[in-house]
Amino acid sequence: MQTVLNLLEAEPIRLLLSFALILFLVLNLAGILTFAERKVAAYIQLRYGPNRVGPRGFLQPAADVVKLFTKENVMPHRADMWIFLGAPIAMFLPAAAVWLVVPFAPRSVVADLNVGVVFFIALTSIGALGLIMAGYGSRSTFSLLGAMRGAAQMISYEVPLILSLLGVIMLSGSLSFQDVVNSQSGGFWHWYFLPQLPMFITFYIAGVAEARRVPFDLPEGESEIVGGFMVEYSGMTWGLIQASEFASMALVSAITATLFLGGWQPPFEFLDLGNFNWLWFAIKTALIIFTFQWIRWSLPRLRMDQLMDFGWKILVPVCLIWLFVTAGAMLLLPSVF
């Protein structure tokens, strides 16, 4: 037994196994989140939602997956085949790979990189590439429109996303997620969302935009450009795009929980669960995912110029001002920090 465990701990095997486990987790997460999305939507609109397959409809995701696998994968005749088929993979893999640096519990993190935050930003920025590939590869006007909107939106909202992380990095003095979580120990009043409230709100909004959720779902915009960059996809390629959307939504929630809400730290010290602290992480992430869904079914979509105005004229200045406030506070009151 011990030799097997040692073998599994050896470096290339450990990383490969963990990555396989992460892929498994993310794919399942996507299935569960589709179900959650439909149920939340239904209850917000005073309906029951899916309730035929299994008890209260719990087996609906499994049925959906079977349906997607058996569906034919239709491709437009003039599509650019390799780009068209590569786009879902280029969207899914970065969203799944960032989970490698997310700390789930005190010692449960696949790769504790000392530049974890930069790793997160770098891999999120690749997402725009997959979007453009999908839009261009389909060779369809709606797809191209959606891709252009998506690229513009993701480039613009990356700026407030990165700026809003700087406050946390300054306070914790580290780019590693594990260090950021450790520096928020001891009760919820030590979490960074209190001293960094404007940054927290900015990061949340920019995160919604990066995950392309309502009210920032212009690349999809089903009422104007009928589905945007993914209008030509069907079957499992469409399923992979959906999976990557849900994975990035869960990812943004998990990063928000890690950076601003203490990660796996319990809200009060006496609620410390030791190795089971991942429960706190799961609860926080699930709550943030729920707020994403709540917003989706409550708000209308922004217009393109409103989107750009909001990103550049409100979020970026707020970040810059609060950056100076944080720096000034750290300089003038070194005893507090």
Binding site: S125, I126, A128
Partner: peptide, 10 residues
């Protein structure tokens, strides 16, 4: 990858 290539494609 994230910025230069995307801006070029754009």
């Amino acid at each position: 990858v994230g910025a230069v290539t995307v801006v070029i494609l754009f």
